[in-house]
Design a binder for these strands. Structure first.
Lengths: 338, 338
DNA sequence: TTGTACGCGTTATCAG
DNA sequence: CTGATAACGCGTACAA
């Protein structure tokens, strides 16, 4: 393995000069510069990143923690994260928690031990446990929350998200305005704070409209195709079946539509479906899905941007940043039958 | 920042002992061990990963290069990669090329400069340029190809994939066996070797059956929803419209179905559609999609496994490893109308 | 403008 | 079983 020493020897200069050539070429005389350049070419030298990072004390790496990869909406957010990461010369490491609760200390340690310069928690599950003591007195390590309906325990961290509760309320209200009275809510895993916010919004809209919520109307969709199919089938067997289902994400909505059609019913004629996220598949579903759109890429960009500032130790303004959502009405919703 | 020195001082031992405690605790006497343990707890010490990697000369990082993230099939492959990466204690860095051609030297350099211990090229675009000279004499850096229909230039690298050509031929033959004669093929980007293999299979099946291929039947779907929708709309305007479309991936098939139905036609009654990959959404499409299934997770696992062996410098057996595909017949295919 | 020499935090070698 | 000490490759004061 060729190191800076070899280059120096071949170029007939000191390692300091080679180092300077690499990091501030303008401080090297043209003549010398050429010699070094040639030596680098000849040897095929590439600076050892490990040594360099070690010396500089920076990883140039940021970790994005997601409950699961392969969720179309998160990819869209990651797209945004990537944009600014690339621009700021950071690499992205994705950590999939497989829907498990995460431990703050684990991430704290990652920063501490220089595994990463910063961390983005993308819709991480609660309870997000951490040791108060670790934090007290010390500055928070650079951590930014994204797409999270912030729980009190984490409210101290900077965060970027939509107002999940308001968005869910609007979606439910839209259903109500269409004339629906029996509206089910398909949540993700019950321990996800993200879906908790959405559930709150749903409950709020229902109670505001003085509409009751039957226990049977709270469906566990697990945020997955499979889970949503199962619980939709159960729903269809109910005697007094809801006329609309509000799903906490589009993937579950897709599964719900499939099961409803498979059962010989029609969407939206028999049952209206509304989703959440506006993933790219929503538009080509049959029927095209009414859903709550989140500005995924923008969320990613803002999140990463704030993380960069946090890493640089600059102030990061208001702790939690709310971006706008939007109800996108397509054709999976209609007035209830009859 | 607390270092091993501080711990040593507090524990009243040498740094060597602390290091030993960390790396081979059984070589430390229990008494000493306890002292060190306590010192670590008290100081909150965490070994500096940067220094450790530097010293060991290992990154514990492997880079996965994909043309684009957010492709459901690749996620499934990544799932497999992750499994063994986790087990082998590697971190995964994802590099999105945005469908650009990649430069071998760039990756060669990544290994060389210790940015990563190994590289997985997941369906990377050709031409994959590299400098013959760089390689000659030297061992290949640890690189494994995955989901690639290997072009000659890269045949020297280990690789894991299905037989794209055979799979595509079977799919086309299935359509032919159903009675179709006018069969279109929707390819991805024309510079993707992956879709080239599939196109070959399609052509082969057609010519074997003595069926002509009209130039209009070669559709550019860009592997994307948008691209596929556009080219499907064009297809529907053709005077002598095909009765079946074989799409190089499921996402394009999904878009094609959507456009066909939007135009008032029926799948499979008017046009049969067949996809490729068997992503998780295929089953809930309307109609459920007939497609060529790839064992995505297995591909990922095998790929990563081979990379590990390559990194360890062990022999890696046959250069290219072919895993089985399977035609999954659902309901998007039927005999042609009339 | 260039070179010398030291230090970064670990691990590894070798003596004790 | 433990302790000195030498690397690892690079960046950077400081001296020339």
């Amino acid at each position: 393995m060729v190191s800076i020493k070899d280059v120096a020897k071949i170029a007939g200069v000191s390692i300091a000069t080679v180092s300077r050539y690499l990091n501030s070429p303008d401080q090297v005389r043209e003549n010398t510069r050429n010699k070094v350049e040639k030596a680098i070419k000849d040897t095929g030298y590439a600076p050892n990143t490990l040594a360099r990072n070690f010396r500089r004390g920076k990883t140039h790496m940021i970790v994005v923690v997601v409950p699961s990869i392969g969720i179309p909406f998160f990819e869209a957010v990651m797209e945004g994260i990537w944009h600014v990461a690339e621009e700021q010369d950071y690499s992205i490491l994705v950590r999939d928690t497989r829907y498990n609760t995460v431990d703050f200390d684990e991430f704290s340690k990652m920063i501490f031990s220089k595994e990463a310069d910063g961390i983005i928690l993308l819709s991480t599950l609660s309870p997000f446990t951490y040791d108060e003591q670790v934090l007290s007195g010390r500055k928070h390590p650079p951590i930014v929350l994204s797409c999270e309906s912030v729980t009190s325990e984490m409210s101290q961290f900077p965060s970027v998200r939509i107002d999940n509760e308001a968005a869910a309320r609007e979606a439910t209200q839209y259903l109500i305005s269409l004339g629906h009275k029996k509206i089910a809510f398909m949540k993700g895993r019950s321990d996800s704070t993200l879906t908790q916010g959405r559930e709150q919004g749903y409950r709020r809209a229902m109670s505001d409209a003085k509409l009751p919520i039957e226990p049977d109307w709270l469906l566990e969709g697990q945020m997955s195709l499979e889970g949503a199919r199962r619980s939709t089938r159960k729903l269809l067997h109910q005697s007094d079946r809801p006329t609309a289902v509000f799903c906490a994400n589009d993937e579950m909505a897709m599964a719900a539509i499939h099961e409803i059609k498979t059962a010989g019913l029609k969407v939206p004629d028999d049952i209206s479906i509304i989703g959440f996220d506006d993933i790219r598949f929503s538009e080509v579903m049959d029927p095209p899905l009414t859903t709550v759109a989140q500005p995924a890429e923008e969320i990613g960009e803002r999140t990463m941007y704030r993380l960069c500032r946090a890493i640089e130790g600059k102030e990061i303004g208001q702790a939690t940043e709310t971006v706008p959502h939007k109800l996108v009405v397509r054709r999976s919703t209609a007035p209830p039958p009859g």
